[in-house]
Design a protein around this nucleic acid. Sequence first.
DNA 1: TATAAATAGGATAAATTTATCCGAAATTAA
DNA 2: TTAATTTCGGATAAATTTATCCTATTTATA
Lengths: 144, 144
Amino acid sequence: MFSKACEYGIKAAIFIAINSSEHRRVSPKEISEEIDSPQAFTAKILQDLVRNDIVKSVRGAHGGFEIDKDKIATTKLSQIVFAIDGDNIYKGCGLGLHTCDENHPCPVHDKFKAIREELRDMLENTSLEQLALDIKSGVSFLKI
Amino acid sequence: MFSKACEYGIKAAIFIAINSSEHRRVSPKEISEEIDSPQAFTAKILQDLVRNDIVKSVRGAHGGFEIDKDKIATTKLSQIVFAIDGDNIYKGCGLGLHTCDENHPCPVHDKFKAIREELRDMLENTSLEQLALDIKSGVSFLKI
DNA sequence: TATAAATAGGATAAATTTATCCGAAATTAA
DNA sequence: TTAATTTCGGATAAATTTATCCTATTTATA
Ligand code: FES
Ligand code: FES
């Protein structure tokens, strides 16, 4: 469904959000350990998220990654997925036709579109904050 | 969402179904032209479908691929997807945890699971026959 | 200002997916 | 039995995704 890069990106963002809410910056090393992902690859993905203004990085001693309090509340999963995987998952044809078009639909268009839109709704209505809260309270987990 | 192999496999199966319903066997060449896919790669995928007893192949002169009439009606999209992409799309964790487990859920488990199950329902309740009919009547298309 | 700590970024490698090529095996028909 | 046609299967290549490594750059602080 999502690429590995996207899975790591989502989990990393959640982990950063948790720590930022407690005023702690975190490093790629700590992040990759806590979300069980390859460190250098995760660092690349973090740079993507920085360029897309989803997380903030602070270079130099005592630096690390963080997310502003208000951004934790307003950032939606959809923004992370879009930054890393693009919009094919929201817009693309399920059977790979060049464009998904009502007027030239593939055989699964109607049924596929319905599911695709639910996925989009879900991603657009799920904030980092919600997800971070569940981790904090021990209801959900970032690895294993 | 689906792999290229799976997209080709689904479209190929639909095209074979259409032709079998008119008692015509088709070759990988004809199939790949009609669904706009690479021929040799499509041939490999057809072999997968043959091994999974989804399509039937007839070797030698006047051979080709076909699907029995009753199978056109009973074969569901889910069987094709499973044969080619496996069951990760139905069972796997959206964030890549080793197993999707109610008792050890990832942050998106509840929301993701709901969509995943709708996708599964859709695939399990969509037959080749339905899809082939829409192509025949010009309502949907296999390429471009 | 020097040093240490940290992210940024380029180059490269490994793994997987996608795609091509060619000969072997099977089947039909002349 | 031979020739023509067609799927089968192995080897290989190209493209993409995933992953690693090393150095440059930035920043805090002693
Ligand atoms: S045309 Fe294929 S999903 Fe819309
Ligand atoms: S644990 Fe992640 S989807 Fe179920």
